[in-house]
């Protein structure tokens, strides 16, 4: 069953077309990698999906509805967009309490999610003192604050060291074991090969291939599959 659907999505900024006619589906209960090099249009497509940017044409829907039309979006979809979204002068806990309050989520849940992402000890530290990995984990804490079934994660592995990447992989596996559906964007193809079930590969704003990891990769690596797909689409 499809839970996220891009249908002819196009987003242009003045003369630059960031995403062009993207049509793809994300299935429930699986980790779907939204892969491509930097500047491929992944973040732009996700911003359109999350109503942070307005599509030039086409649609990006979650369970058949625009994100902005969801009744309680944080309880349906958890999202990470880059590592931003926090006031750097406030502690991680205060940032989470602000976000929790806006969705009617109790303060206790903020402490719970900080524990889930191993940030309990750093909860009162200012975000500007966090390492990139800690900011990524705080972003993940925000995403699971409302206990949503669907997660949309934009480059959550960006800047993580090998231990952080291993932690993220385990974290995502635990979430899918609990029935979550995850759409995760990344330019780190080698790492994603070990993490995702399904693949959407985007290049220069266009979808160049999609399918299960096994079908897309075949007997080679994801990097090789990516290069094959880009060359075939050129």
């Amino acid at each position: 069953m499809s839970i996220i659907a891009f249908q002819g999505l196009t987003k242009a900024y003045k003369d630059v077309v960031a995403v062009k006619d993207l049509t793809a589906n994300v299935e429930a209960g699986r980790i779907t990698g939204f892969l491509g090099p930097n500047g491929a249009g992944k973040s732009t497509a996700l911003k359109c999906l999350l109503s942070l940017a307005t599509p030039t044409s086409g649609t990006a829907l979650i369970r058949g509805a625009k994100y902005q039309d969801l009744v309680n979006p944080m309880k349906e979809v958890g999202a990470v967009i880059e590592t931003g979204g926090f006031n750097p002068s406030l502690s991680g806990l205060k940032n989470l309490r602000i976000i929790a309050a806006s969705a009617g989520i109790g303060d206790g849940r903020a402490l719970e999610v900080l524990e889930l992402v191993d940030l309990t000890d750093a909860r009162n530290k200012k975000v500007k003192q966090y390492s990139l990995g800690m900011k990524q984990r705080l972003s993940l804490a925000t995403a699971i604050l409302g206990e949503p079934e669907i997660l949309v994660l934009d480059e959550p592995a960006n800047g993580l060291d090998p231990i952080g990447i291993a932690w993220l992989r385990d974290f995502l596996k635990k979430l899918t074991a609990n029935g979550h559906s995850i759409l995760i964007s990344s330019h780190q193809l080698a790492e994603m090969q070990n993490t995702v079930d399904d693949v959407l590969i985007i290049h220069k704003g266009r979808l160049v291939t999609e399918g299960t990891m096994a079908n897309v990769v075949g007997s080679g690596t994801l990097e090789e599959a990516f290069i094959r797909s880009v060359e075939a689409s050129a």
Binding site: L52, G85, I99, T142
Partner: peptide, 9 residues
């Protein structure tokens, strides 16, 4: 970003 993700309206 986090504000409008929590409250897209």
């Amino acid at each position: 970003i986090s504000t409008f993700l929590a409250t897209p309206k």
